[in-house]
Design a protein around this nucleic acid. Structure first.
Length: 365
DNA sequence: TATCCGTGGCA
DNA sequence: TTGCCAAGGAT
């Protein structure tokens, strides 16, 4: 029996598919609009791409709308207060993105006259813009023939060419394939089409190969099992860390907050006083680590999974008459009614909610 | 190159 | 329930 060579993949069937099946997204100019002369706003493209780094479309939508309403142009974002940007980003995760977003806006405003560079190289020199984002903005906003490679494209390409080299070693080869496939016309639509395809058809599990515009050209579909690709290096298992967090509330309804170190985990974000998060921690050590002496009362444990460890945070609360000075630790007392405006990451909202069930309107129970 | 960096949805 | 993993970047 002869093995048939797959048809050589080309961009055409994918672009045709995109014209019929593209998703309507707030930051996107539809192919029809583009054909009518509409051009995507580089600021919106950049903002969406940074938010979409390792983050789902559904999670990004409300944040994108909020940022655009509050800071309609890159110069507005450049002029914003850091704290306001961090608070607006709270909950979206990967907070270095927010710090770099602000730095990037400032660089564009001050060093580029408020206009984004229109080349991959120029874009990549900006904070928070790496290989992927530079190529994506260059292709989508500036019609550059840039090879865009994200997790979706890795999956599509690895299947299309049945690349067995595990990631990340196989990434350069995949990038080469994408570059060869990227057309000179409509490179931005091609990039978005590849990502849409990966998100809706060429999915990690149970891909809908019968609906795929590449079904006649896909080596994995023809000779193997598409789900086998992409091959990835084995990953480490997550260690467990433990810690204690302390929620102190005054009779006036104010809570003690602190600011975390500018870099590292949850860098620059707001927290309630907490111990270090380490492999082991016993209860007596926890109580002794409280920010001040008081009748601390245990109120449960909060679980939270970070990228590289799982945290079990025991929560302690106390109700005290008045404020205790915490300025040595850069602490301050904030009205509980004003917590929504703070740059509180999700783990801290969970901790506070465990001690003060009504602190957040969105809190469970 | 390997590690660090959040969060939520889904099978 | 557990693991996977989503439009990655910085160091």
């Amino acid at each position: 029996m002869t093995i048939t060579t797959p048809d050589t993949p080309t961009a055409k069937p994918l672009l045709d598919w995109y014209d019929r099946h593209h998703r309507d997204l707030p930051w996107r100019i539809s192919p029809g609009m583009a054909a009518g002369g509409a051009k995507p706003d580089p600021y919106r493209v950049w903002l969406s791409e940074v938010m979409l780094q390792q983050t789902t479309v559904q999670a990004v939508k409300p944040y994108f709308a909020k940022f655009l309403q509050r800071w309609p142009e890159v110069t507005d974002l450049a002029a914003a207060e850091n704290d306001a940007v961090m608070a607006a980003w709270a909950g979206l995760g990967y907070y270095a993105r927010a710090r770099n977003l602000k730095k990037c806006a400032e660089a564009v405003a001050k060093e580029h006259g408020g206009v984004f560079p229109d080349t991959e190289e120029g874009l990549k020199s900006l904070p928070g813009i790496g290989d992927y984002t530079a190529a994506a903005v260059a292709a989508i906003a500036f019609n550059r023939q840039a090879a865009v490679m994200d997790g979706n494209v890795e999956r599509v390409i690895s299947r299309l060419y049945a690349i067995e080299t595990p990631l990340p070693v196989g990434k350069p080869l995949m990038k080469e394939k994408v570059a060869r496939l990227t057309p000179a016309t409509r490179p931005g639509d091609f990039a978005q089409a590849m990502m849409d395809l990966g998100a809706t058809i060429c999915t990690p599990k149970r891909p809908a190969c019968s609906l795929c515009p590449f079904r006649g050209a896909c080596a994995a579909l023809k000779h193997s099992d598409p789900e086998f690709f992409p091959v990835k290096a084995a990953k480490k298992e997550k260690p467990v860390r433990q810690g204690a967090a302390f929620v102190a509330v005054t009779a006036d309804g104010e809570i003690l907050l602190r600011r975390r170190a500018e870099s590292g985990l949850l860098g620059g974000m707001t927290e309630v006083p907490t111990t270090a998060w380490t492999a082991r921690l016993d209860g007596e050590t926890s109580a002794a680590a409280a920010p001040f002496e008081a009748a601390w009362q245990a109120c449960g444990t909060v679980l939270h999974v970070f990228t590289h460890f799982e945290l079990r945070l025991s929560i302690w609360r106390t109700a005290i008459a008045g404020k205790v000075d915490d300025r040595a630790n850069d602490g301050w007392w904030e009205p509980v009614t004003n917590l929504e405006a703070q740059a509180l990451p999700t783990i801290m909202k969970k901790a506070i909610a465990a001690a003060i069930p009504l602190a957040f309107k969105t809190s469970k129970e």
